[in-house]
């Protein structure tokens, strides 16, 4: 049965459903659940082995995008080409590293009919790892102390201040827990080589890991907030299983964040609750988390709501979700012919 969403064509990045998964596949599942199976999904990939490329039931067609390092000019050019083939309704970017560029070109995308629902550059920057501590202090949000590292020579006094263990984080991705000077140095060197400066050293907080997926309206409120407690954590620190929980303190934290930033679009709060029941925000991701389908399954379909917002619909804020909904991630061996990989690699389309 056709609905008002039939035939919408939505572009989604983050098809890397691997052991450090991007949110793309979860976003697509939620979109199909919320808007109907008859929408068209165009995947955007950076690598030819992102599993989502080969998931034909979920992704109708995939195009390769230029890396963020190529800049906004190359991205807009590529998306204009893709739009000429696909007539995109909207795009949901799901990588931290690509958001800067998508935010810059959002007005140009709108001119060719492609909608987005993204934070501003200033909003993106305040929650950046490098600025998070100052941001938290200014707005009364609990953030563990951190230092910015520009050289290995900064490590000794920083480790003295923060003590071991401490968390060493890359500018965009990756984090290591360093237990001594050697491991701190090793982590620093890896992260500076991969992501540049600054490298962040953050005080390690021991406790329960909780994530909150939320959707900011852009005028200081949230349209949806779903907290999830991680039950099983991979070596890379990713949730492999988690359960929706109810805790007003978490909801208040998200509301405080939305109020302080006027956040527009998806975000995720990474929170630790320590032994004294104190909450600490250790990171704020400016996009949907990879577990976002759980939020939809628990009653708050944030990706579908985001698309509706981008289309100018009036979306009523969600006010309830089911607690005790559990997700258990699993791996699945997709089998395709080498020719598909070759085509994607060489032509950047499949």
């Amino acid at each position: 049965m056709a609905t008002r969403y039939t035939g919408l064509c939505i572009g989604v990045t983050g098809l890397n459903a691997n052991d450090n998964p991007g949110p793309g596949i979860a976003v697509i599942r939620a979109l199909k659940a919320g808007l109907g199976d008859d929408i068209r999904i165009v995947g955007f990939a950076y690598e030819s082995l992102e599993p989502g490329i080969y998931m034909q039931g979920l992704v109708d067609k995939t195009y390769q995008l230029p890396y963020p390092t190529a800049g906004t000019g190359a991205l807009l050019e590529r998306l204009t080409y893709i739009n000429n083939q696909e007539k995109l309704t909207a795009i949901i970017p799901n990588f931290d590293a690509e958001l800067h560029n998508f935010i810059i070109i959002a007005p140009s995308l709108l001119k060719i009919g492609i909608r987005t629902f993204l934070p501003s550059l200033a909003q993106l920057q305040v929650r950046d790892k490098a600025n998070l501590f100052e941001f938290g202090n200014k707005n009364g949000l609990p953030v563990p102390p951190h230092y910015k590292l520009f050289s290995a020579a900064d490590l000794p006094h920083v480790t003295e201040e923060l003590g071991f263990p401490l968390v060493i984080k890359g500018k965009f991705y990756d984090a290591y827990i360093a237990v001594n000077m050697d491991s701190a140095l090793k982590a620093f060197k890896q992260l500076e080589a991969a992501w540049g400066y600054p490298v962040i050293a953050q005080k390690y907080i021991k406790g329960t890991e909780i994530n909150v997926a939320a959707l900011g309206s852009g005028n200081g409120s949230n349209l949806s907030i779903v907290p999830m407690r991680k039950l099983y954590i991979t070596e890379k620190g990713k949730a492999w299983a988690g359960v929706t929980i109810e805790d007003n303190a978490l909801v208040e934290l998200a509301d405080q964040f939305a109020k302080a930033t006027q956040w527009r679009g998806a975000y995720e709060l990474e929170i630790i609750r320590d032994a004294e029941d104190q909450l600490f925000i250790i990171e704020i991701n400016p996009r949907f988390p990879a577990w976002i389908y759980l939020a939809a399954a628990a009653g708050q379909n944030q990706p579908a709501a985001l698309i509706k917002m981008s289309m100018g619909e009036n979306v009523t804020p969600f006010n309830s979700y089911e607690t005790g909904k559990l997700f258990i991630r699993h791996s699945w061996d997709q089998v395709v012919d080498i020719a598909e990989f070759q085509k994607m690699s060489a032509f950047g389309e499949l």
Partner: peptide, 17 residues
């Protein structure tokens, strides 16, 4: 080899264009 310029080495599993 394929007409698109692809090369697959079944002995090693490597692909080339």
């Amino acid at each position: 080899t394929s007409e698109n310029g692809f090369v697959f080495n079944p002995a090693t599993g490597d692909s080339f264009s």
